[in-house]
């Protein structure tokens, strides 16, 4: 074999590896569509996306409850993760002494590494208990009938997406040119004025990208949600108590798939839920990539 032949073989093998990421993505779309097809071709798609009754036994598939459940829990998670995460990112890059950075960075990495099922167990035992007993007593004088529901889910999801919000926001804050800061200080601004008027506006596209990625994570999270949201097929109408329970796209797929007959309409409907989830996550990912690419074009960091 000539040396040139060897290079050609290796090159071909490497080319095939490079194709695999794109092929896997295509396969995912293909198989989701294929399995969802019986439902997509016979079902009523508008009714699927807006309907609020999910009764596979009666052949009624309204995924609206799950979509609403996913959106509500994610919004709740953002209430926790955005203020805390952005503040922490600002702290890390503008205020923190080196010692604090050296403690905080590994802590955030660890927070990102804890498996979702471990967060789920913690939420099931600790947060659900706190909501049911302590918060219940505090607000109503008695413990609540259940601690599961949107509050517990939002709290744990908020913690779970903190690391991504912090790391992307921090990159964005880092990318604000040093000269902007110096100009602001030279005008006599305090640190906070600089943060508020110069750094945060400059870093906004990047922070938004981080938040969008966090939304994608929260919408796609399954295990913690299954354990603490209560898994009742309804739209949460309260923050506490039995009306705060619900179900999301992810938890519906996971719970129903364990008993559904393969090839049935219900099975195809679950794959349609999967497709919905896939396209939501895909759109969010593209939106954040767009924002990050825009930032990269503006500044080289």
């Amino acid at each position: 074999m000539k040396p040139g032949d060897k290079e050609k073989t290796v090159r071909a093998a490497l080319f095939l590896s490079a194709l695999s990421a794109a092929l896997i993505l295509l396969f995912i779309v293909f198989f989701l569509f294929k399995e969802a097809l019986p439902f997509l071709s016979h079902g009523d798609l508008v009714g699927f996306l807006t309907g609020t009754v999910w009764k596979p036994t009666a052949n009624v598939y309204g995924a609206g409850i799950f979509i609403a459940g996913s959106i509500l829990t994610t919004a709740g998670a953002l209430f926790i993760a955005v203020p805390l995460g952005v503040a922490c990112a600002v702290f890390l890059s503008e205020v923190a002494p080196k010692k604090a950075v050296n403690i905080l960075r590994p802590a955030i990495e660890l927070l990102a590494g804890i498996p979702s099922i471990v967060y789920g167990l913690f939420a099931l035992i600790v947060i659900v208990g706190l909501v049911q007993q302590d918060l219940g007593k505090l607000l109503t004088g008695d413990s609540l009938p259940t601690g599961k529901g949107i509050l517990a889910a939002a709290l744990i999801l908020g913690v779970m997406i903190l690391p991504i919000v912090i790391s992307i926001s921090q990159d964005a804050i880092c990318a604000v040119p040093r000269s902007f800061r110096e100009a602001s200080y030279a005008l006599g601004s305090t640190k906070w004025q600089t943060i508020q008027k110069v750094i945060l506006p400059g870093a906004m596209p990047g922070i938004a990208a981080g938040v969008i990625l966090g939304v994608g994570r929260a919408i796609g999270e399954t295990m913690a949600v299954v354990l603490v949201l209560g898994n009742v097929g309804m739209i949460p109408s309260n923050i506490l108590g039995i009306d705060s329970r619900g179900e999301t796209l992810t938890s519906a797929i996971m719970l129903d798939m364990s008993y559904v007959p393969v090839g049935s309409m219900h099975y195809a409907a679950l794959f349609t839920l999967g497709l919905t989830l896939f396209f939501m996550a895909f759109a969010l990912s593209m939106a954040s990539e767009y924002l990050l690419a825009k930032r990269r074009r503006q500044s080289k960091c």
Partner: peptide, 21 residues
């Protein structure tokens, strides 16, 4: 772009895909 999109696919969707394939 494909790799980024793959990274964003929710874990339960990988579950569905693995189940089917």
């Amino acid at each position: 772009t494909a790799s980024d999109a793959l990274n964003a696919v929710p874990s339960i969707v990988f579950g569905l895909f693995g189940l089917a394939l």
